[in-house]
Write a protein that binds this DNA or RNA. Structure first.
Lengths: 217, 217
DNA sequence: TAGATTGTTAATCGATTAACAATC
DNA sequence: TAGATTGTTAATCGATTAACAATC
């Protein structure tokens, strides 16, 4: 059993990985923790602490980390090579935005289909030309998951009123990880305690800004 | 100068407030920390600890907190009565989703306008009937902010490539708080250190689920 | 009364920051 | 060499959990 890595660390590892992707440096060059601080906003001390904690001891004094090796290590931790296929429940604006999310590709995450109940959406395809995804009716979901037993994750973007029952339904059909975007705290039923759920409502970070600007005087 | 409240606490306070809104209990009833745990997922110990920290000592043993009083206290902390008017830069799917975000109203947050550069969007109105908002051209932003000097916050939903320059422009025009939704870590220029910025890319929480499901064996 | 729930303190836990010897 | 940067430890800081006396 591996060491447990907190989600905070995972988040920062994601930052490092994406920064590396975007910098697009030659594989045989080096990047220092100081440079990583510059591009990710994570302090260089924190960067080295993370690497130490994760057993990434590939640095060279005076140079930094070989890009090629660092990529390999980060990929390993994030299981990038494993890949993941996911579905999106709710083909509204947020669902469609997620279905086009650029960085998923770099993470080896594939959105295979969207599901909705609106007649005007069901049967259409969404997304940019060349990477379009079908919108199916929610009633087809059960069969779809049976045909695609490698799909264990769903992104939930249905209206608040339908969110909890949809989550319950997803779990019944074998989904094991869900990100809920509805503005409602959902709960995993007790009998399915191993299902991973993140409530991540778009818009809540605005509250923090409002607080910082208007309450903190 | 008030005690500094961390953003984690603010986030939980938001949960309590929204739970209270949704439960819609009569003002003269009581709610216990145990019940708040049930509806928010925050442990009752944490709830009481938060209230203690914030000086909310209005509980009655054996009963809990009077809904009316609790509302008042939470509103005070979150500055709900102050209110905030904000603009959205980028009228794509995420921008439009945010412009319709239900809970903003309960928080006394008003989206006044959206800005974009796409000809097919500029000049239109978005949103549900009765609460439509105009989409203006980004070039009109400077004048708009001059006319509405009470607007200090922008939600940034432009494409990644344009995000940093747009942020710089916003700051130049006097914006003091920004939530960035583009999949890129933006930086506030050194000369504007007091500007509040949150990078909150939709989709990153999926990475956590993927990690929990596929890496943690 | 007995049971339930608060307010508060202390203990625990975890995360971040700082510092620095080692060395390329 | 001198300067820069790592790996690692220790110190600090902050957040959460647990416990319980007080009391309605």
């Amino acid at each position: 059993m591996k060491k447990k890595i907190s989600l905070r660390v995972i988040r920062r590892i994601s930052f490092y990985y994406e920064a590396l992707l975007k910098l697009n440096l030659p594989e045989n060059t080096y990047i220092s923790s100081k440079k990583l601080e510059e591009v990710t906003g994570v302090s260089c001390n924190q960067v080295r602490q993370d690497f130490f904690y994760l057993g990434i001891s590939i640095g060279k004094q005076k140079k930094g980390y070989l890009v090629k090796k660092l990529f390999r290590e980060l990929k390993k931790i994030l299981s990038i090579d494993h890949g993941a296929r996911v579905v999106i429940i709710g083909a509204g604006r947020i669902g469609q935005a997620l279905s086009n999310y650029k960085l998923f590709k770099a993470r080896n995450i594939t959105v295979t289909a969207l599901f909705d109940i609106k007649p005007e959406l069901v049967g259409t395809e969404v997304g940019k030309p060349g990477q379009q995804k079908p919108v199916l009716h929610v009633s087809q979901l059960e069969a779809y998951l049976k045909e695609n037993p490698d799909i264990h994750i769903a992104l939930l973007t249905v209206p608040e009123e339908a969110a909890q029952e949809t989550l319950d339904m997803l779990i019944t059909h074998g989904v094991r990880g869900v990100v809920n975007f509805a503005p409602k705290i959902l709960k995993v039923p007790k009998e399915a305690r191993d299902v991973q759920l993140i409530n991540d409502c778009i818009g809540t970070s605005l509250y923090k800004i409002v607080y910082q600007l208007y309450s903190r005087k």
